[in-house]
Write a protein that binds this DNA or RNA. Structure first.
Lengths: 342, 342
DNA sequence: CTCGTTATTGAAACCGTTCCCAACCGGATC
DNA sequence: GATCCGGTTGGGAACGGTTTCAATAACGAG
């Protein structure tokens, strides 16, 4: 990064370079764009020298004004504190940088109003594409943008009536793997714990998948929809499972639920982990540390992030013209102590 | 959000509104800007109606071209997987939105090269200010931007030779609180575990503060600089402390270290938590769940995020003209089982 | 030697907004 | 009645690039 001479003077413009290199600003513009090869070697050298000397870097904002390409992609994240979201975003950001795009990460904090504000702001910045992991099932703002031709990729959660690509875990397969693992370990009663389904697609398919596979395998089961911020409900559930079913395992539908159940089991007393199985969807930093180690089904977060960006860039470049569809990627089961019997 | 008539037609411009309302585009511009009150009520009504009808929203990118104000602030964060960083950023984002700014969050993944790429990209988007939590102690790229007049606020880590505001934990007070708490609980030997200091300011001040306060209190102590990704070193440290000093407590200098030490204690066997005290700087989701519960010193993450934004906006508006300084905010100790004796 | 072609280059329009400045208007002052 | 004034309004030049289109040069073919 060359030092700009002249102290605090304003950043050099394409015009300054043009004057310095004694060429037209058109040529300088071409030097940075797709038509670069049309320039004669001699001209290229002169421009390069001036660019170097002045420390010029094109202003992407100005560039996008006429050209329309901001090279900016935005990611709307429902909850930055959720390690799953962060992991996906991290992968997505790298993929973006590699493609010469910048990723603007926005936190909606699980709040539809914040989400709307963020969307309005993004609209003003004319981002080229959107990666959305949304809290609100509210399609209206998104579908409006989508209709205006903004490519949108949904991560994890589908939105009804919004025809765009969706990338996420293969819930059916994942739940089946979980159930089969638990059966294999000798559990005879399975309890699924999910946040309230409320039409949110991964919750729906995990609950539905769980019930279907349990019926198919002929195993005793039930399921519960609990609010993460109501600890009492988790305490009651754990107490009930401890009392009634000796060989119960709890399957949590995501990391937030895993955390809540672990807290409840912790409150229930030192032998809760010995008497109750636990398997969580979503791998977390601390899973090995709690009780005998919490078994998890790790989501393919890197792949999800990369696929999301690839789909977006595909739509953007026109390479991908197939009708919007869903991609479901396989998870990986990590067995630990919490699903070992005996 | 009004629906735009005309289907996929391009978004309306200020010119369209002007034509529709039969006013000049200057007036429409004023309608959205600071000079709004100069407009007669009648004109305002006409413009409002047209804006509503056409679904117009000003293009912030174009606006920034002439006006210079992108209303964009960027946050460079070293590691999005670190809950501390995320918590600070989350608070910062809200403060930004409240002030009408958007926050562009960029992950540098603890990689100086990525950090440089990100900075170069941000330069191109002419962000108005920078909140930096950096991995690299490399000041060159940042100080160049700073010299060009870009306001920068550092979170957590100071950078030598870079004169800008720094917001972070009051390390001295925090470490003193930790040491006093441990002494109060009856520990007679304290071990500090930090990542390699390597000139990184919070590590430096925590290590230095620890040594000073321990000497002052006259308590037996030592300290260790360990790489987070070398588990063997943690195992050795834990084994040594278990063998040699019966009343030892380990103080970890941040959340990453806490996690690593917990893993090592977990590997060391079931009674490690009973025989070794543990107190971690940084509060984490799972601290209550591990062993008897890990005591922590919670950083004032919300306040740090808010103060960072306030300082930035102050510089931006010219309200804050005091020479760049440091703000050190107090932490809060959360005692749990891991620092209880007997 | 003339003509058509292709490779370089530049001039000027344009992108959507802000901002400077001039124009206009009704009323108060002299 | 002319002048000045504060309050509104509009015209048009920026802003820093991209893109269209024309001009020129160089070159091979006939």
């Amino acid at each position: 990064m060359p030092k700009r001479p002249g102290g605090t003077s304003r950043r050099p413009t394409i015009r300054d370079v043009a004057a310095d290199a004694n060429v037209s600003k058109t040529s300088v513009s071409r030097y940075f764009g797709a038509e670069r090869e049309r320039l004669s070697p001699e001209l290229k050298d002169r421009i390069e020298a001036s660019v170097e000397r002045l420390g010029f870097a094109p202003d992407r904002i100005a560039a996008s004004l006429r050209g329309g390409r901001t090279r900016l992609i935005a990611a709307l994240v429902a909850d930055l504190r959720n390690p799953y979201s962060v992991a996906v975003i991290r992968a997505a950001e790298m993929a973006c940088m590699d493609a010469g795009y910048s990723l603007m990460i926005c936190n909606t904090d699980n709040d539809p109003a914040t989400e709307r504000r963020q969307l309005a702001a993004l609209d003003g910045y004319s981002v080229e594409g959107l990666i959305v992991n949304t809290a609100s099932g509210d399609a209206s703002a998104l579908s409006e943008l989508s209709e205006q031709g903004l490519p949108i990729v949904l991560v994890d959660r589908r939105i009804p009536d919004l025809a765009c690509d969706v990338i996420g875990l293969d819930d059916g397969q994942a739940v089946a793997d979980c159930v089969d693992h638990l059966i294999g370990q000798g559990f005879t009663h399975l309890s699924l714990v999910s946040e309230p389904v409320a039409g949110i697609s991964p919750r729906e398919s995990r609950v539905a998948g769980f019930r279907a596979i349990c019926r198919d395998r002929g195993i005793d089961h039930d399921w519960h929809e609990l609010e993460a911020d109501a600890p009492g409900a988790f305490d009651r559930l754990v107490a009930e499972r401890l009392a009634e079913a000796p060989n119960t395992a709890i399957l949590t539908a995501n990391g937030v639920m895993t955390l809540a159940v672990c807290h409840a089991m912790n409150r229930a007393g030192p032998d809760a982990f010995a008497r109750l199985g636990l398997l969580g969807i979503d791998e977390l930093d601390w899973c090995a540390l709690v009780g005998p180690g919490v078994s998890t089904l790790a989501q393919p977060v890197d792949a999800i992030g990369r696929h999301a960006v690839r789909a977006l860039l595909g739509r953007l470049s026109g390479t991908l013209t197939a009708p919007a569809g869903e991609q479901r990627l396989p998870g990986r089961l990590i067995p630990r102590g919490s699903t070992k019997r005996g």
